[in-house]
Design a protein around this nucleic acid. Structure first.
Length: 598
DNA sequence: GTTCTAGAAC
DNA sequence: GTTCTAGAAC
C-alpha cells in the first residue's frame, strides 16, 4: 500500500524536516519541538536524513510502526552540505590567472563587450561536471557561430577548478576561438580590482526566487552588488524558470558598478540535480543537458542584446570606432529582435526558449528560428504536441459542450459571460466546489495558456473570487482556494473554486485528494504571475497524484483516505505558510454587506 | 470524470 | 473477513 511513498521535501512548504531513525530520535525531536514558544523557531533545513539511503522508504510513515534501530543517525546530525570544493565561498581578492589567450596582446579585442560567467548548475545543483563542460563548449561554439565581436570568459574561484580544466580541454578540441573565449580563475565579483579584467556584464548562477544567500556565486554577487542590486533584481522579476535568464541593470549606486564597472548582471537558473533543492531532475541528464543548454543560450543571447544596444549607443554618440553595429551579429536578426520595443524586450529577456541559433544543436534539436519567431513556433509545436498527446476520453468533452452552449445546460450553469461560464462541479469534492470555465475554443488546459490569455485568466479569477466571497459570506467557516489542475481530466480550461473542508462523499480516491493538495494544483494567482513573467505556466507531474496522503493543514501523513478524512475533520492547525500569500480566500469581515454591494 | 472489481493490506 | 486501492472500461 505504501510502496510509492515519497519523502517530504522542503519545496512542499516545510521550513524544517527532521528525520528520525528510531524511537530515541522521535523522543528527542518531540522534546525539541515541544519546547518552542509561539514565536520561537528552529533553523530551517533537512535534519537527520541519512545521506546514503535517501531513496529508501522512510519518512514520516515510520511513526506508525516500530522500526529497527540501527542508530546510525542522530537527530542533531547536520544537514547535507554543499560540496565546498566545487562551491567555494567568496574569499576576497585573489590573484587571478587567465588561462586563455593573452588579452593584452590583442588590442582590438580589449574594447569588445565581455561577459564573465560562472559554471551553471555544477556547484550546489550538483550537475555532472563532465556533461556540463560539454554543454558549455557546445553553447559557446553555437553562440560564436552567429554572434561576432563579443567575448566570453568562464570564471571559477580556484585555479584548480575541474570545470575550468574540462572546458579548456574541450574548447581546444573543438577549436573554439580562444581570443573570444577564455577561462579565468578568480573572484567573479572582483574581476577588475582583483584581475584587471573589464567585464561590464557578469552572469549569476541564481536560485529560482532570485534571492540573495545560499552560498557560492549567488551569495557573492548579491553581497558585492549590495541592496541596490537586490532592489534592481526585484524590479525585473520575482522568480525565474530553469533554463532561462533575466537581465538586471546594475544601479550606479551599487558597489559592483562603482568598484568593478559591472553595469549588468544576468541572473541564470540552470537545471538542478540536487534532491534538496527545488525542481530536482533526479539524474535525468537528457532533460538536464537540454535545460542547461537553454540556460546558456538564454544567457548568451541576453548578453548579445546588451552588447548590441551598447554598440548602438556608441554609434549614436560618435564613440564607435567605425565598427558597424551589425557586425556584432552574424545573424543580426537573431538579436535585433530583442531591440524592437521595451516591453517586448523585457518579455523576451525574461524567458528563454532555447537556442536562437539557426543550426540544430544536439541538446535542442528543433531550435531553429529567431527569438520572436521562436516563441510562436514553440507555442505551435507545444500546442500541437499537447493535442497529439491528448486523447480525451468520451467523458472529457462535457465541460467543452457546456462552455460552447451554456444555454442548453441551464440547470448546471450559475453564471454566463462572453468569456466564461460558471457551473457547479457535478461531483463536488468539498462543501462548495464550482468551476469557472473559459469559453475560448481550443484552450483546453494549463499548457495551452500564453500571454495573450492573461486578461481572460484575470476575468476568470475575478469571477471565482466573487463566488468564493459570496459563499463565505453565507458560511464564514468556508475558506477557498482558486486554481487549476496541472493536467485536467476534462477538456476546456477550467478554474476550480473549492472550499478547503473537503467534506464530500465524492472525495473517495487518493487522486482526488492529491489533485487539490499537492503542487499539482496550481493556484490561480501563481499561474497568472507565471504567465505574466514567462508566458508559460509550470505544469507539475502527474506522479504527484499518487504521492503520500498528507493533511493540508498540519502536513501529517495518513495511510489511507478514510483515515485522512477523519483527521482533517478535526485538525485545528493553521494552513501552511506557503499558502499564506493570497492563495487562500477567507470570509471578509462584514462580508455580507460587501458582497451584497457587488 | 465515474463505476466496477480483483487483489493487496490490514 | 473487511477495508481500501488502483487499473480497466466507459
Amino acid at each position: 500500500m505504501l510502496q510509492k511513498k515519497v519523502l517530504p521535501n522542503l519545496n512542499e512548504g516545510f521550513s524544517r524536516i527532521t528525520f528520525c531513525q528510531n524511537d530515541d530520535d522521535v523522543k528527542t525531536a518531540v522534546n525539541t519541538y515541544s519546547f518552542l514558544g509561539l514565536f520561537d523557531s528552529l533553523p530551517p533545513g533537512i535534519i537527520g536524513q541519512k545521506s546514503g539511503d535517501a531513496k529508501v522508504q522512510q519518512g514520516i510513515m515510520k511513526f506508525f510502526k516500530k522500526v529497527d534501530t540501527d542508530g546510525n543517525c542522530s537527530q542533531n546530525s547536520a544537514p547535507k552540505h554543499e560540496n565546498n570544493e566545487n562551491n567555494p565561498r567568496p574569499m576576497g581578492i585573489e590573484k587571478g590567472s587567465e588561462v586563455g589567450k593573452d588579452e593584452q596582446n590583442d588590442f582590438q579585442w580589449n574594447d569588445a563587450p565581455t561577459l564573465a560567467f560562472p559554471s551553471i548548475s555544477t556547484s550546489d545543483f550538483q550537475f555532472n561536471m563532465d556533461k556540463a563542460s560539454d554543454v558549455i563548449v557546445e553553447a559557446v561554439a553555437d553562440f560564436f557561430s552567429k554572434v561576432d565581436k563579443v567575448k566570453l570568459i568562464l570564471v571559477d574561484l580556484s585555479s584548480k577548478s575541474k570545470m575550468l580544466s574540462l572546458v579548456k580541454v574541450k574548447a581546444s578540441e573543438k577549436n573554439v576561438d580562444t581570443t573570444r573565449f577564455s577561462t579565468y580563475a578568480g573572484d567573479i565579483t572582483r574581476l577588475y580590482t582583483g584581475g584587471g579584467l573589464h567585464c561590464n556584464v557578469i552572469a549569476n548562477a541564481s536560485n529560482w526566487r532570485l534571492k540573495p544567500g545560499g552560498g557560492g556565486v549567488n551569495a557573492a554577487i548579491f553581497s558585492a552588488g549590495g541592496e541596490a542590486l537586490e532592489i534592481a533584481t526585484k524590479e525585473q522579476a520575482d522568480t525565474i524558470s530553469p533554463g532561462s535568464s533575466i537581465i538586471v541593470p546594475v544601479p550606479r549606486t551599487s558597489p559592483l558598478n562603482q568598484r568593478e564597472g559591472v553595469t549588468y548582471v544576468i541572473h541564470v537558473l540552470g537545471p538542478n540535480m540536487n534532491p534538496q533543492r527545488p525542481n530536482c531532475l533526479k539524474d535525468d541528464y537528457v532533460k538536464g543537458c537540454k535545460v542547461l543548454y537553454e540556460a546558456y543560450s538564454s544567457l548568451f543571447n541576453n548578453f548579445a542584446s546588451i552588447a548590441l544596444s551598447q554598440n548602438y549607443q556608441k554609434e549614436y554618440s560618435g564613440d564607435s570606432k567605425s565598427e558597424p553595429t551589425k557586425s556584432v551579429c552574424k545573424s543580426f536578426e537573431a538579436v535585433v529582435e530583442c531591440q524592437r520595443s521595451s516591453s517586448e524586450q523585457k518579455s523576451k529577456r525574461e524567458v528563454s526558449y532555447g537556442s536562437d541559433c539557426n543550426k540544430k544543436s544536439k541538446y535542442n534539436g528543433d531550435s531553429g528560428g529567431l527569438p520572436g519567431m521562436l516563441e510562436k513556433e514553440e507555442q505551435k509545436s507545444e500546442r500541437s504536441d499537447h493535442s497529439a498527446k491528448s486523447s480525451w476520453g468520451s467523458w472529457a468533452h462535457a465541460l467543452h459542450q457546456i462552455a460552447m452552449h451554456p444555454e442548453k445546460h441551464n440547470l448546471d450553469v450559475v453564471e454566463i459571460s462572453d468569456d466564461f461560464v460558471v457551473l457547479n462541479d457535478l461531483y463536488p469534492k468539498a462543501k462548495k466546489h464550482i468551476l469557472v470555465t473559459s469559453r475560448l475554443p481550443g484552450l483546453d488546459c494549463l499548457a495551452d495558456i500564453r500571454r495573450e490569455h492573461l486578461p481572460m485568466l484575470q476575468k476568470m479569477h475575478a469571477a471565482g473570487l466573487k463566488w468564493a466571497e459570496q459563499f463565505s459570506s453565507h458560511d464564514p467557516s468556508l475558506v477557498f482556494r482558486l486554481g487549476y489542475h496541472s493536467v485536467p481530466s476534462m477538456r476546456q480550461l477550467h478554474l476550480h473554486v473549492i472550499s478547503q473542508d473537503f467534506d464530500s462523499t465524492h472525495l473517495r480516491k487518493k487522486k482526488h485528494w492529491n489533485s487539490f493538495n499537492t503542487p499539482f494544483f496550481r493556484d490561480s494567482i501563481d499561474v497568472q504571475e507565471e504567465i505574466k513573467m514567462n508566458g508559460l505556466a509550470t505544469i507539475k507531474d502527474e506522479k504527484l497524484l499518487s504521492s503520500e496522503l498528507r493533511c493540508h493543514h498540519c502536513k501529517s501523513a495518513h495511510p489511507n483516505l478514510p483515515r485522512l478524512k477523519s483527521h482533517i475533520a478535526t485538525c485545528k492547525a493553521p494552513f501552511p505558510s506557503h499558502l499564506q500569500n493570497g492563495q487562500l480566500i477567507f470570509a471578509l469581515s462584514g462580508s455580507s454587506d460587501a458582497v451584497s454591494a457587488i
